[in-house]
């Protein structure tokens, strides 16, 4: 009885899901078809809008010739480094300021100002400081990731349940043990809630950095294509970047499920 109703349910769900998936694919195909029709009929100038078949061919070329891999690798390394370093700094600063009212009161206006500043504008400065290699892109990514993580950890520290805190203190925890067993895990769950955004930001930092001046990376490919008015390669680069971002997001989702087993919400998603 129960198993029958359970399989009914999956059948219903599958019945609903398949058309949705089909619709999504159709939407994509439709968009490509419209793009193709408009550019080949001359409604939109192909010089500015590219030709979809050539764009897809370009993507195919890149992957089959292997030309894209070194660039993807560079962009990936920049993203991962910016994410890791930015998160580390953000957690450290968030814990420190969250636990020290004096320091946070002192630094408050400056943090607000630094966060409000459009930090992409720092890219040229980083290029001057760190050269055109990986370091300047990582630095830009760090400034983007840092604030997201910082604010989340800061909030997390402030919102640790006072009852859990009192209870752990009554169990005899020292200040350091409180940090390790209460503040850090609590902050971590907040870091995870912003993981998708911060990984995305690390990626943005890498690509924008490359775009504004570099010698390698997917952003560099796009920059180069733009320089020769090769609009098809620009679109191909954008397609690759989008697919790459989706893959990163997928990886983050997997990591999240693995690391947050204790979390009611994450655990419920798994089901």
């Amino acid at each position: 009885m129960r198993s029958a109703s359970a399989s009914d349910k999956t059948a219903v769900r599958r019945g609903r899901r398949t058309p949705l998936f089909v619709w999504r694919v159709l939407l994509l195909v439709g968009a490509f078809a419209a793009w193709y029709a408009l550019t080949s009929l001359g409604v939109l100038p192909a010089f500015f809008f590219g030709r979809p078949l050539v764009v897809l061919g370009r993507v195919w070329d890149w992957f089959s010739s292997g030309k894209i891999y070194p660039h993807l690798a560079v962009t990936l390394v920049e993203t991962v480094l910016a994410f890791a370093i930015g998160t580390l700094l953000g957690v450290a600063a968030g814990l420190w300021l969250g636990l020290s009212p004096t320091a946070s009161a002192l630094l408050d206006p400056y943090i607000k100002a630094a966060n409000a500043m459009p930090r992409v504008i720092l890219a040229p400065i980083f290029a001057v400081w760190f050269g055109l290699g990986i370091a300047s892109k990582v630095a830009l990514g760090i400034t983007l990731v840092f604030f997201i993580v910082f604010f989340n950890v800061f909030q997390g520290v402030r919102e640790v349940s006072p009852v859990v805190l009192a209870s752990v203190r009554m169990l005899g925890a020292t200040r350091r043990q409180l940090l390790r067993h209460v503040y850090l895990p609590s902050a971590t769950s907040w870091v995870f809630s912003s993981l998708h955004i911060s990984v995305g930001m690390a990626f943005v930092g890498a690509v924008v950095g490359e775009y504004l001046g570099s010698a390698a990376g997917v952003g560099y490919l796009i920059l180069q294509a733009e320089g020769t008015f090769d609009i098809d390669s620009v679109f191909a680069g954008i397609l690759v970047l989008t697919a790459f971002a989706l893959l990163l997001d997928f990886a983050v989702t997997r990591a999240e499920r693995h690391l947050l087993t204790w979390h009611p919400r994450a655990a419920a998603d798994e089901r």
Binding site: V163, V164, A166, S167, A173, S186, T188, S189, W262
Partner: peptide, 22 residues
Amino acid sequence: FQADALMPWRNARENVEAGLIF
């Protein structure tokens, strides 16, 4: 405590042994 005071990020055993670990 009147309210729930277990550490949600530790399982039951880790919660029980916390004081000893401290």
